[in-house]
């Protein structure tokens, strides 16, 4: 099962490698990992997308909680949550393709944020599967480069992760 784990940790040098090291040392899988400081700059917020059985996910959250720098851990997939990922795609936009790319970007509610006479760079935000769908909808040969942030997640409604 895919799980999306969110955690708050001390914004200190080495904190990220403790989390990454834990995953590799214990053989847990990381699909994506994003991290950045929060509004309180002493804290970082991390979102990890992982896969595993319930037992493995339980161990992952316990082992994460055990790290001294980790303040709080929550498995967002346990309840309502929202996840978003940002992707930048550089595509061919020559002659006949130019109109087609603009249309595709509009359909997926992307924004063209850089233009040359031969390329567009499209910014797209959404859940991971939406970004996947966009890439699939494009002609493979038209994609020059993609970069994705990995998912960030937050609980729905009153569910708040605070120190």
């Amino acid at each position: 099962m895919r799980h999306i784990i969110s955690l708050l940790m001390e914004n200190e040098a080495g904190a990220l490698s403790r989390v990454a090291g834990l995953f590799s040392a214990r053989g847990y899988n990381i699909e994506s990992l994003t991290v950045a400081p929060t509004e309180d700059e002493t804290l970082s917020r991390m979102t990890i997308v992982t896969r595993g059985s319930d037992d493995v996910i339980e161990q992952i959250t316990k082992q994460l909680n055990k790290l001294i720098d980790v303040v709080k851990v929550v498995d967002l997939s346990e309840a309502g949550h929202i996840e978003r990922e940002l992707m930048l795609v550089k595509v061919r936009a020559e002659d006949g393709l130019r109109e087609e790319m603009k249309r595709m970007s509009d359909i997926f509610r992307g924004r063209i944020i850089d233009v040359t006479d031969k390329t567009y760079t499209i910014e797209l935000t959404g859940a991971g599967h939406k970004l996947d769908a966009f890439l699939e909808a494009l002609d493979k040969g038209a994609i020059l480069e993609t970069v994705r942030t990995g998912a960030s997640g937050i609980g729905r409604g009153d569910r708040i992760l605070k120190s």
């Binding site: 080495g14 490698s17 403790r18 040392a25 001294i68 720098d69």
Partner: peptide, 14 residues
């Protein structure tokens, strides 16, 4: 040293 010992300490500091 912090990197080398990370997997075998409860915690470490530089």
């Amino acid at each position: 040293m912090v990197g080398i010992t990370r997997p075998c300490v409860k915690h470490n500091f530089l």
